[in-house]
Amino acid sequence: MKIETIAIHAGNKKDESSKAVIQPIILSTTFERGIDGDFPGGHIYSRSSNPNRASLENVLAQLECGADAASFSSGNAAGMSVFQSLPTGTHIIAPDDMYHGLRNQLKNLFVGILTFDFIDVNNTDVLQQYIKPETGLIWIETPSNPLLKITDIKKIVAVAKTRGIKVVCDNTFATPICQQPLALGADLVMHSATKYFGGHSDLMGGALITAEKSEWWQKIRQVQEMGGAIPSPTDCYYLARSIKTLPYRVKGHVQNAQLLAEFLEQHPMVERVLYPGLPSHPQYAIAKEQMLAFGGMLSFIVKGDENDTHNIINKLNLFTRATSLGGVESLIEHRATVEGPDTKTPRNLLRVSVGLEHIDDLIADLKQALA
């Protein structure tokens, strides 16, 4: 099936008793055992499994062309489950432009348990220098947050496989509509489902999708069940519902982002636009080769200082000053403020989650704010 069909059908199961076309929300925390002590419905206890979660995980796995998927209460919970599944002392290589929430997890929660280095993973020579005998995982994020760096997934996988190292790709910015890391050789894909999967800024979730049901994947599943950082049946229902429109929503986000990036690149008040769909992007050739579309996120650097960036966003009417991304509404954020004192993000950078408003209205709003 094509991805639009998968998005609609793989996350839904018709109710056999009522013949309801749309799967109902099953709120029960526990499930009846059969007379032989077995569980004829396939579920024991909702922390372990739930019908709505099973449907959500089925569509997630199929969208990423994976063997299985595990859903979580947030993207951070999904990422943490990967780190928790690793043996003590494992060394992780992560990108220097990594989502600050997961970077802070490693720096604040896993010190003394895991070791890690944040480097330019695109530089193969540097990457090779940082690989140690205890290196067990290379974490990549492409496009990255907030600098929109593109990592050559195939190149990283080629280096990792010669050393028996696992590769995890944070695919949140791209979604499976724009990029499919498992098809490029990654072992695991991670998503903050709060973003484009949810798509309406009203629920939280996270997901991991695996290329194969390996021993490592079973360990991650164990962390999911025993740790209990799972989404509620209601969240699973609404995520599966939102995913039905994901392919068409993302197409709109991509189209608007491309046009907005082209407008900003020509504006005299803009120093630089960071968007992989622009030929001026330093990794444009890589993005063009490995991405199906260039995504709905962009950042731009203002000609001025931090005060100038705040003055611009305070003049905007359609772009909401808020964190997060992937909703139908356009958001804008001074990213360095969010990331804290150790941020490497330029103080005059603004990150934009391009929504589904009419592009003429978005351009007009930015034009008056930049005037």
Score class of each variant (00 low, 15 high):
Cys236Phe: 05
Leu203Trp: 02
Ser201Lys: 10
Ile113Met: 12
His191Val: 07
Val121Ile: 03
Pro143Asp: 11
Asp120His: 01
Thr194Leu: 03
Met204Gln: 14
Lys166Asp: 12
Tyr196Trp: 03
Val157Trp: 03
Ile119Cys: 00
Asp152Ile: 06
Asp235Met: 11
Val168Thr: 15
Val126Tyr: 08
Ile119Gly: 04
Ile156His: 07
Gly205Ser: 03
Thr234Gly: 15
Tyr238Arg: 01
Ala186Arg: 01
Trp216Gly: 09
Val159Ser: 05
Glu225Phe: 15
Gly199Val: 03
Pro231Asp: 05
Asp202His: 08
Gly199Ser: 00
Trp216Asn: 09
Gly199Glu: 00
His200Pro: 03
Leu208Trp: 00
Arg163Gly: 14
Asn171Glu: 05
Lys195Val: 04
Lys149Arg: 14
Pro233Ile: 10
Phe173Cys: 13
Asn108Thr: 14
Met190Ile: 11
Tyr238Phe: 12
Phe116Gly: 03
Leu148Ala: 14
Ala207Leu: 09
Asp187Ala: 07
Ala183Phe: 06
Met204Arg: 13
Ala229Ile: 05
Phe116Met: 11
Tyr99Asn: 07
Gln224Arg: 15
Met226Thr: 15
Phe197Cys: 07
Thr172Ala: 01
Ala183Gly: 03
Pro133Lys: 12
Glu141Gly: 12
Asp187Leu: 02
Leu114Gln: 00
Thr162Lys: 13
Thr151Gln: 12
Leu102Cys: 10
Ala229His: 10
Gln179Lys: 15
Leu148Thr: 11
Pro176Glu: 05
Ile177Tyr: 06
Gly185Tyr: 00
Lys132Ala: 09
Ser214His: 05
Gln218Val: 08
Pro231Lys: 00
Gly136Ile: 09
Ala160Ser: 12
Lys219Cys: 14
Gln222Leu: 10
Asn123Arg: 01
Ile153Leu: 13
Tyr130Thr: 00
Cys236Leu: 13
Asn104Trp: 03
Asn122Lys: 01
Asn171Tyr: 08
Pro133Asp: 10
Gly198Phe: 02
Val111Lys: 15
Met204Gly: 13
Asp187Lys: 06
Asp120Glu: 03
Pro143Ile: 10
Glu225Ile: 08
Asn122Arg: 05
Gln222Ile: 11
Ser232Pro: 12
Leu102Asn: 08
Ala160Gln: 06
Asp235Ser: 12
Asp97Phe: 01
Gln222Gly: 15
Asp125Lys: 14
Tyr99Glu: 08
Thr142Lys: 06
Met204Ile: 15
Asp152Gln: 08
Gln224Gly: 10
Ile177Val: 12
